[in-house]
Amino acid sequence: MMNTTHTAMGVTLAAPLAVVAPELAPAAALAGVAGGVFPDLDLLSGQHRQTLHFPVYYSAAALVSGAAALVAPTVGTVAVAFFLLSAALHCVTDAAGGGLELRPWEATDDRGVYVHPANRWVAPRRWIRYDGAPEDLVLTAVFSLPGLLLFDGAVRALTVVGLVVAVVYVAVRKQLPELETRFLR
């Protein structure tokens, strides 16, 4: 899935707080955005979906930090909980997409996301055929609705930017491997 889908999902996780704890909602949403982005920073390491993708560990940490946020709901505890929850969701949902190949629509790679405790890769499910597929854009749009309707300020602005980036990325996605092989190798 596109990073914009992951960030929109992070904002959506925080949407209920806009009603039940509006003073904490912006921090939770921004932390959800950061948690949605963070695992993909492993693209810089050359070990994508392995180095910073921890579906089991982020999930466990999200449970602990979520409990702490329920007991002591401060901006800090809520932000940590939503960062970890969004990072966990990012890693788990990566397995719903395609593999790690340069042209994921060809479906030649069986690596979806690495599960460290099991010391193995989970195969991609390809429910979202590849990052930047039209159905990925639909998910981004749907998960952007809470960011557009329930938030203002930075959260809404980041949601709008994410939608614009998603539309452009989907429009050029299938041309990117050709550009990469032509200009970066």
Rank of each mutant, 00 (worst) to 15 (best):
L102A: 12
A157S: 13
P104Q: 07
L149F: 07
E180H: 12
G153Y: 11
A21W: 04
V33R: 00
S144R: 14
V78K: 00
Y169R: 05
A154G: 14
F183E: 07
D152R: 00
I128P: 09
V75S: 11
T77C: 01
P16H: 06
E135K: 02
S59T: 06
D94G: 11
L149I: 06
G162S: 13
D110N: 15
A68Q: 11
A141F: 13
L41D: 03
R185L: 12
Y114K: 14
T4F: 00
P124H: 01
D42S: 07
M1W: 13
G32P: 08
R185A: 12
V170W: 00
M1Q: 05
P22K: 00
F82V: 13
W121V: 12
A141P: 15
T74L: 08
F183V: 12
G162Y: 02
R49M: 09
A95Q: 06
A107T: 03
G36F: 02
L158H: 03
N3E: 11
G162C: 11
L137F: 14
H53G: 02
D109N: 05
G76E: 04
A29Q: 05
V80Y: 12
V78I: 09
L139M: 12
S65M: 08
T77V: 02
L149G: 01
F82D: 05
W105R: 02
V37D: 08
A67T: 10
A62M: 01
G46N: 01
A95P: 05
A88W: 01
V71L: 13
H6P: 08
G10H: 10
T12L: 02
V138N: 04
Y58M: 12
L24E: 05
L102G: 14
G97M: 04
T5P: 09
A133V: 13
R49A: 07
V92L: 04
P39N: 05
T140D: 05
M9W: 00
F151N: 06
A123Y: 14
G147Y: 08
R103Q: 15
T12H: 04
L85N: 13
H6I: 06
A60N: 07
A79T: 10
G112C: 00
G10I: 10
L150Y: 05
V11H: 02
Q47P: 12
R103P: 15
A81N: 10
G147D: 10
T74C: 07
E135Y: 11
P16Q: 04
G98F: 06
A96F: 15
D109Y: 05
D40F: 07
T93E: 11
T181V: 10
P146M: 00
R120T: 14
L63R: 01
S45I: 13
V33M: 02
L163N: 11
M9S: 05
L149H: 10
A61G: 08
L89Q: 14
L13H: 04
V19I: 08
G35S: 03
S144M: 08
L43T: 15
V37T: 07
D42M: 06
G98Q: 07
A107H: 08
V164F: 11
V168N: 09
P22D: 06
L89K: 09
T12S: 06
F151Y: 09
W121N: 08
V11P: 09
G76N: 02
R129Y: 13
V33S: 09
R49H: 13
L139K: 07
T140C: 05
